[in-house]
Every structure is written in C-alpha cells, then in structure tokens.
C-alpha cells in the first residue's frame, strides 16, 4: 500500500474522524484536536504495528452501521456518540488506538507548551525538586524495631 492509499483508506478516514472526536481542539487552551495532521501522522505510525486487529475492529464498527461511508456520513453529534459507546464497550480492541492517540497528543510540543511544560526532552537539563521536610521522619525514628529476627 502506498502512503496515499493508506491516507485515503476508509479505515484511515474513520481513525481521523474518531480521534478528532475523542480529543477536539480547544480554543480556551489554544490547542489542536488529535486529528491535527502532525499528531494524526504519529498516531497512524504507532498503530501500523497492530494494523490487523485494529482494522478488524474498525470494520466491525463500520459494519454495524452498514458501511464505513454510512458511519462517516453521521453528523458530529451522532458520530461522537457512536465513538463514545465503542470506546466504552470495546475498550480492549480499541485500546491500541486510544493509547496511540494519548501518546501522540501528549507528546506534541504545542500541547506540552499549553500545559506549561517544555517540549524539550528532560535530558540533559534535568529538573529541580524540593528536598522536603525531613523532620517529618522524627516520629518514625523513635519507633522500636518492627522486623522479626530470622
């Protein structure tokens, strides 16, 4: 299959519509939906290793509505309901897709920035964390031993 064919396949169209409905854009937070081309590309890459079970699942979902075209023709509200129900009822099989969506979405630089996080990898800069209040340990220090001898 060529890239173009993959892009155009009804499963891909279904995935695009599904992920956009699962995580829509937010104007409030200034972030794209999960069907943003850059994010979608990474979703498709991630699920490509599990093509067979996912395709079977998507076909079953579309089949329940007559055809992929019929499912895709639903309006946003109806489509959203179908997806929400599918996610609830078929979490096992669709788990691959949901995991891929969340991983692609929450590693996207735009989304990370909107969360106040750096899109740069943590290494080599690292992070600071508080040492914390070690006097909290005082009551434990004064406890008698709680191990048994062997």
């Amino acid at each position: 299959m060529t890239d173009q064919e993959i892009q155009d396949s009804s499963e891909t169209q279904l995935i695009r519509r599904m992920v956009g409905s699962l995580i829509p854009a937010s104007r409030n937070h200034g972030i794209p939906a999960a069907d943003d081309p850059l994010i979608l590309k990474r979703v498709l890459q991630a699920v490509s290793r599990f093509q067979a079970p996912l395709t079977a699942e998507l076909r079953a979902l579309a089949g329940a509505h007559g055809s992929p075209e019929a499912l895709l023709a639903l309006d946003a509200a109806d489509f959203g309901e179908v997806v929400a129900r599918a996610v609830e009822e078929r979490i096992g099989a669709l788990g691959i897709l949901l995991t891929a969506v969340l991983q692609a979405y929450y590693t996207d630089p735009r989304v990370l920035r909107s969360l106040g996080k750096s899109p740069d990898p943590p290494f080599p800069h690292g992070n600071d964390i508080a040492q914390g209040d070690w006097t909290l340990l005082d009551p434990v220090r004064s406890r008698p031993p709680l191990y048994r001898d062997g």
Partner: peptide, 9 residues
Amino acid sequence: PIASPAWEA
C-alpha cells in the same frame, strides 16, 4: 528516550 522529544512514546 529521555534524551529525545516525544520520550514518552
């Protein structure tokens, strides 16, 4: 992974 972007994926 931690040395590259998208280290969680």
